[in-house]
C-alpha cells in the first residue's frame, strides 16, 4: 500500500467547516424540497466570502488548496444540494484566467450521452476552454433547462467546453464528492425519520429490518466516499493506480445513488412524495453521474 494520507489538509478542513456554517445559517433546518426550486443563495453570499476562489492556484494569488482540500469542501457543499454553481465556479477559477477575471458565476459545457449540457447554464457564463490555454467564453446560445435536474439546472447548449485532461479529472472528482455529501445527508435524514416515525407503537428505527438497511446504507456511503477520496488524494497518479479515475468515480456515484434509493424505502410512503424531497438528492446524483460520465468519456488531451 502506498503511504498516502486520506485526510484533507488544514485549508480543506477549515473551508469545509466554513461552508457548513454558511449553508447551515442560510438553509439549515429548511427541508431541501422547500428550496430546491427557488434561489435561496444569492451569488454575493458566496462571492463576498471568497468561496468561489477557494481553488485558485498559489501562482495566481490563491491559497494553494489541493484537490483533496477541495473535495472536502465539495462533500460539505453536497450535503445541502444547494442550487448554486459553486463547485463549477471553483473549478473554473482554478483552471482559467478568464474565469478569474469574472465577478459572477462561471460554468462549463459537458458533452454527455444526451447532448452538451451546461449546469446552471442559464445564469452563468460558459467557458470555451478549461485548462487548454488562453480561453474565453462561449457565445450564449442556450436551449431549454432540463426539468429533471432541479438543483443542477442543466441547460442544453450547442458547443462543449474544451477540457484539458487534468482539469476534467478534477471537476469530475469534485462533482463526485458532491454526490457523496448528498448521499450522506440523505442517510442522516432517513435515520432521523426512522427515529421519529412510529408504527405499531414504536419508532420504525427500532425494527431490525430498518436498522440493517440503514447500516448497509452507511457501508455504501463509506465506500462511495473512500472511492472519491482515493481519486482526490495527493499523488494519485493516473495510469499507475490499480483502478483509474473513471472507474472509481462512476463506482462512487452509482453507490451514492443506491444509498438514496434505500433512503426512499426507509421513508416509506413519504419517500416517494414530492414534498418529502428525497427525490431531490436522487435527481442531483443521477445528473452528476451523467455529467461525470460525459466529462471522463469525451475529455480531450
Amino acid at each position: 500500500m502506498t503511504v498516502r494520507r486520506m485526510r484533507a489538509g488544514e485549508i480543506g478542513v477549515l473551508a469545509a467547516e466554513g461552508v457548513r456554517d454558511l449553508l447551515g445559517g442560510v438553509l439549515g433546518g429548511t427541508p431541501v424540497a422547500d428550496y430546491a426550486e427557488t434561489d435561496p443563495l444569492g451569488w454575493s453570499v458566496l462571492s463576498d466570502g471568497g468561496w468561489d476562489e477557494l481553488g485558485v492556484p498559489e501562482e495566481a494569488g490563491g491559497a494553494g488548496a489541493t484537490l483533496r482540500d477541495l473535495a472536502e469542501v465539495a462533500v460539505a457543499w453536497g450535503r445541502f444540494c444547494a442550487p448554486a454553481p459553486l463547485i463549477e465556479t471553483i473549478a473554473a477559477k482554478r483552471w482559467s484566467a478568464a474565469a478569474r477575471d469574472q465577478a459572477g458565476p462561471v460554468t462549463v459545457a459537458v458533452p454527455t450521452a444526451a447532448g452538451v449540457m451546461a449546469p446552471y447554464g442559464a445564469t452563468c457564463r460558459v467557458l470555451s476552454g478549461l485548462g487548454t490555454g488562453p480561453d474565453g467564453f462561449l457565445s450564449e446560445v442556450a436551449g431549454p433547462t432540463d426539468p429533471f435536474a432541479l438543483t443542477l439546472r442543466t441547460v442544453s447548449v450547442d458547443t462543449a467546453t474544451a477540457f484539458a485532461g487534468e482539469a476534467a479529472r478534477e471537476l469530475a472528482v469534485l462533482w463526485t464528492a458532491e454526490g457523496v455529501g448528498a448521499a450522506r445527508r440523505c442517510l442522516t435524514d432517513a435515520v432521523d425519520y426512522a427515529k421519529g416515525r412510529k408504527q405499531f407503537g414504536v419508532p420504525i428505527g427500532s425494527f431490525q429490518a430498518i436498522k440493517h438497511r440503514a447500516a448497509h446504507a452507511l457501508e455504501l456511503v463509506e465506500r462511495a466516499e473512500t472511492a472519491v477520496l482515493w481519486a482526490a488524494a495527493d499523488g494519485y497518479a493516473e495510469g499507475a493506480e490499480s483502478i483509474d479515475t473513471r472507474r472509481l468515480l462512476l463506482h462512487s456515484l452509482s453507490t451514492s445513488q443506491e444509498v438514496v434509493e434505500s433512503c426512499i424505502q426507509i421513508h416509506g410512503g413519504m419517500g416517494f412524495t414530492w414534498e418529502m424531497g428525497v427525490h431531490v438528492y436522487l435527481r442531483h446524483i443521477v445528473t452528476l453521474r451523467e455529467l461525470v460520465e460525459g466529462l471522463l468519456s469525451h475529455r480531450a488531451r
Binding site: V191, P203, S206, Q208, K211, H212, A214, A215
Partner: peptide, 17 residues
Amino acid sequence: SEIQRNIIAERVLGLPK
C-alpha cells in the same frame, strides 16, 4: 454481519435499541 449491523445501527447511527 447481523451483529455488526446492529452495532452500526445502534452505536454509530443512534437508532433505538
